[in-house]
Design a protein around this nucleic acid. Sequence first.
DNA 1: AAAGCGGGGGG
DNA 2: CCCCCAGCTTT
Length: 353
Amino acid sequence: MNSVQYSDKKSGDISAALLAHYDVHARILPWRAAPGSDTPNPYHVWLSEIMLQQTTVAAVKGYFEKFTSLWPGFAELAAADEADVLAAWAGLGYYARARNLHKCAHEVLSRHDGQLPQDEAKLLKLPGIGAYTAAAIAAIAFHRRAVVVDANIERVVSRLFMIGQPLPAAKPAIRSAMDRITPEIRSGDFAQAMMDLGAGVCSVKSPLCNICPLAPHCAAYQAGQAEQFPVKPPKKAKLLRRGIAYWAHRDGHVLLVRRDAKGMLAGMRALPDDRWTARQDGDGEPPFAAHWTLSNKIVQHSFTHFTLQMRIAVAEGPREAEYGEYWPMNSLDKAGLPTLFSKAVSAILAERV
DNA sequence: AAAGCGGGGGG
DNA sequence: CCCCCAGCTTT
């Protein structure tokens, strides 16, 4: 038997073993079609895939229910105000996704007659949809064969075939291997099965190889080195930044601003700040004159590339809110603040009780 | 090719 | 505490 035939048989064995496992153990998720029955709703698949980018399933569930309740389809979402979409997204992170979500709904209405295109290449042209998401939607929502590769699948595949290059250099080899083992039919189920496996069994630390349906085919497991894959590049040290947020209150209201459309927390409602960035500490200068008193509260929040220690200055705000809008303190939960500023709000309100 | 971009859960 | 997650866009 030559190596090509062996490789094809092995690939078939892998996909058959995993799909059989999936038919019994698939996670029940709100955006997933019931096993073996109805077809998935493309709007639900798309929405969930955008929300799941760099985000865990547990974090997404509540937001998915909220969005489908507020906006049941592309038409309703496209008709919504962007500010409302951003506010509903508040707390989920990576806010460019919310802006692109809204833009994408518009393009589906204006260029695709209200229906998501089924072709992977056309999906790839829509805002917020990259290589992973285009493949996932084509395969899961439309039953097209597509090669789906996310971080879970990178881990599973790199272990299956003991791909020893460090990421991201290993990506082409991983994609090629995933292509080889992806079946012609049910590639969407296969991708979801691989992701379920990565989430529950083939975990980063302490993988459960003893119950893994792919263990008989897994090179890293056979070598006793599953946890050593994938090989990752060395991490960079995370910087500490300091900054100030300004709590300007007047008549039970607090002054909120809208952040710039680019950069950190782009376009989100926020407390005014002293121009801290990922690159440098704040300058300590208030955005407008008032009798500022520095509170002893410090809010600490960790972003991808730095940690921020944010102090909070308090003063009675100006009569005219030139810099933003006065928002009622008793409904700040509806302001759509990112988590950093929600922490600041909690700290101040607790102090004022 | 590398950097920028949130937040929360798990070990 | 560190690590990483159903990645995309911009530089």
